[in-house]
Structure formats: structure tokens, C-alpha cells
């Protein structure tokens, strides 16, 4: 059969038992087998059953993406692996805290751009702002790029979280 070698970017949701070492298993799988992690987020989403949701953005050929899902499914504490990219429409969001230091015109310009991007200033001093911005990864990238000449000093990002559109659960 013909092997497809185009590189695709996929967002995969993994429901796991929230137990010691589970994140190490997932990360170790990616590093040990040489798969990419573009972003990874994790938090408990079902406290009653102690289930965490990991959202991982990865890239590879269709064959590699299939392997990644099969390998994740093989881990004993994994309940479900859902390829949100393959399943259809989904929304992805990321949150960033962006610190910009400066005075005068640059300060004004930073505020103006923040407004355009719907970023909120959540901390401010005479010489700095911390903006909170959320949205698609590309939007965050664009905002951060624009802040560089205006005195960007620090960035903290959450990585992507994603959820399928429509009424059904994972």
C-alpha cells in the first residue's frame, strides 16, 4: 500500500486515571518513541472518579498519528483516546500571560494592540503590564510577536485545551 508522508497536526484528548506516574507514562511514551509534543496540558476533570484529561497536540504522518493513538491506548491507566482533529469540528483555546515593560509611546501602543486582541491587563505598574490573552494558538503567537518591539519581557502559556463542537461528550 502507498504510504502517505504528509505531516499532519493533530489534537488528541486522553482520559486517564489520575494516579501517580500517569503523566510520566504519557510523556515517556512520546520521548521514548520519538514522537513530537507541540503542547500538552493536563488537569483533573472528573473529581468523583479521579479522571484527568490530557490534551496533547502532536504532529506526524498519518501512520505515526495512528501509532501514537494505538500506543496511548495501550497504557493501562488510559480510559479513552480521542483524536479531536480526526473526529471533526472542535474548538481549541490557549491562555497566555504576557509581560511587557516600557514607557511612553510604546506603553500606549501595547495597550492599543491588547485592546484589538481582546487581551486584558491584569497587572500594571508604571513601567509594565501583564496581559491575559486567550484564543487559538496562532492568535497568541501573533500577539506575542507584536509585543516584542514594545518591550516583551516574559511569557507564560498554558498549552492548548480543546473540546469537540456539538452536544455530545467525549
Amino acid at each position: 500500500m502507498v504510504v502517505d508522508s504528509t505531516i499532519e497536526r493533530h489534537t488528541i484528548a486522553v482520559l486517564v486515571d489520575n494516579e501517580a506516574g500517569v503523566l510520566a507514562r504519557v510523556i515517556g511514551l512520546f520521548s521514548g518513541r520519538g514522537y513530537n509534543i507541540e503542547s500538552l496540558t493536563v488537569a483533573e476533570t472528573d473529581t468523583a472518579d479521579a479522571i484527568s484529561r490530557i490534551t496533547v497536540v502532536t504532529s506526524g504522518t498519518p501512520q505515526i498519528i495512528e501509532q501514537i493513538k494505538a500506543q496511548l491506548n495501550r497504557l493501562v491507566p488510559v480510559h479513552r483516546v480521542v483524536d479531536l482533529t480526526a473526529e471533526g469540528a472542535n474548538v481549541e483555546r490557549e491562555l497566555a500571560l504576557v509581560k511587557v515593560a516600557g514607557k511612553g509611546d510604546k506603553r500606549v501602543e501595547a495597550l492599543r494592540i491588547a485592546d484589538i486582541f481582546r487581551a486584558r491587563a491584569i497587572d500594571s505598574t508604571n513601567e509594565s503590564f501583564v496581559f491575559e490573552i486567550s484564543g487559538a494558538t496562532e492568535k497568541l503567537n501573533a500577539f506575542i510577536d507584536l509585543m516584542v518591539p514594545l518591550g516583551l519581557v516574559d511569557v507564560s502559556r498554558t498549552g492548548v485545551v480543546a473540546i469537540a463542537r456539538g452536544k455530545s461528550a467525549l
Binding site: Q63, Q67, R74
Partner: peptide, 17 residues
């Protein structure tokens, strides 16, 4: 190629079937 295997990760790993 037909591939019978209990482990889905063995399938299409090296050879696409």
C-alpha cells in the same frame, strides 16, 4: 496483506496492511 494481532499498535507500525 491481512494482519491478525491482539495489539493495535503492532498494526501499520512498520508495514501498512
Amino acid at each position: 496483506k491481512i494482519h491478525i494481532d491482539i495489539d493495535p499498535s503492532s498494526i501499520n507500525k512498520n508495514v501498512v496492511v
